[in-house]
Simulated scan of single mutants.
Amino acid sequence: MTITLAVANQKGGVAKTTSVASLGAALAELGQRVLLVDLDPQACLTFSLGIDPEDVEVSVHQVLTKGVDPAEVILETEDGVDLLPATIELARAEADLLTRTGREHVIKGSLEDLSEGEEAYDWILLDCPPSLGVLTVAALTAADGVLIPLQCETLSHRGVGQLLDTVHDVRRFTNRRLEVWGVLPTLFDGRTNHSRTVLDTISETYDLDVVEPPIPKTIKFAEAPAAGRSILATSRTSKGAQAYRKVAANLLAKAAAATKPARASKRR
């Protein structure tokens, strides 16, 4: 079964794109077939994986607004994951989709063929834009779960409640199966008590699971996009790379546990 996971937080600077690229590469190392979908008009994920958005002629924008087959747009990357790339054109998608009937289901409909048959992906990770607009709602509608990267600082609390309100609305109207997989602590500074206090407060306030281990703050993350690779390739033994590997293994275990009841009910 394909697991579609939206990685979302409308606040910028929380390592959302870094998390998508790193988790995708880590899952690929574990033998999973992974597709990353860049839904941010800034195309940071596309650039981070060694693809210049300026050189991309057909992107996720055409898939969502023109009905182009995503299989014709998907690119292979050196990190062992496939990518549905973005360009600045995606900035027009919000306006293009705003008046379209069923706009909330546009991503789900576009990706359906990629989660069926022998060539189906094991994981589809959606890198959501830093907003709660049409594209983020459509991503949540297409997803099985949502992972919330959260910088371990007090100001990062702002907006979490709004995101969870959006998740609640999506559950009510467009995707009843959507689950919050938890908060992924990023930019964690283990030398301070403040970071852990922030996590405890978030967990208690919003009743959210904290996905372990925390992702440490390191300059290695800033160096990776310049090489067009994830940190798992540019700094394989760094603490950041090791942390993402552990998170990926934990997500894989969670997905396996979640699919067992579904398989059992099918056999019955």
Rank of each mutant, 00 (worst) to 15 (best):
T99R: 11
D165P: 06
S115R: 13
G133Y: 01
L84W: 09
L163K: 10
I107H: 01
L126D: 05
T154L: 14
E57W: 00
D96N: 12
W181S: 08
Y121L: 10
R177A: 15
E179T: 06
V183F: 08
L111D: 02
L64D: 01
G182M: 11
E78K: 15
D127W: 02
V68T: 14
V106I: 15
W123L: 07
G159Y: 05
G133T: 07
H61V: 12
L150P: 13
S115Y: 01
T87G: 14
R103C: 02
S131V: 03
D144M: 00
L98G: 10
A93Y: 06
V134D: 04
V63A: 02
E89D: 15
R176Y: 06
V60K: 03
H61K: 04
S156D: 03
D113W: 01
L147I: 11
G67D: 02
A142E: 04
L84M: 11
G102W: 03
K108Y: 07
L98H: 11
L114P: 06
T65E: 01
P149G: 12
I74C: 13
W123S: 11
R158V: 13
V134S: 03
T141A: 08
I107W: 00
L125P: 10
I124M: 13
D96W: 10
A86G: 08
T101G: 04
A138V: 05
T174K: 07
P85I: 11
L83V: 12
E116V: 12
V63T: 05
D82Q: 11
S110C: 00
L64C: 05
E118A: 12
A143Q: 04
E119F: 04
L64P: 00
R92K: 11
L64Y: 01
I88F: 14
K108S: 10
I124F: 06
D79F: 08
R176M: 05
V68M: 08
I74N: 11
L163V: 09
T101N: 06
L111N: 00
H105P: 00
S131A: 11
I107N: 00
G145Q: 08
I74Y: 14
G182F: 09
H105D: 12
D144L: 00
N175I: 07
I107V: 14
A86N: 12
H61W: 12
L111E: 03
S156R: 01
P70M: 07
L97T: 01
E119V: 02
N175F: 07
D144C: 00
N175Y: 08
E112N: 07
A71Q: 14
E119Q: 13
G145W: 03
L114E: 00
V146W: 10
W181P: 10
A95Y: 02
S156V: 06
L90C: 10
D122G: 12
C128I: 01
V167E: 10
V183A: 02
G117Q: 03
W123T: 08
E78A: 14
V167M: 04
D79Q: 11
S115M: 08
G80D: 05
W123E: 09
G159E: 06
P129L: 04
H157D: 02
G109Y: 04
I74F: 06
G145N: 10
E78H: 07
D82N: 11
W123H: 09
T166A: 03
G117A: 05
L75P: 01
T65S: 03
P129W: 02
R171L: 08
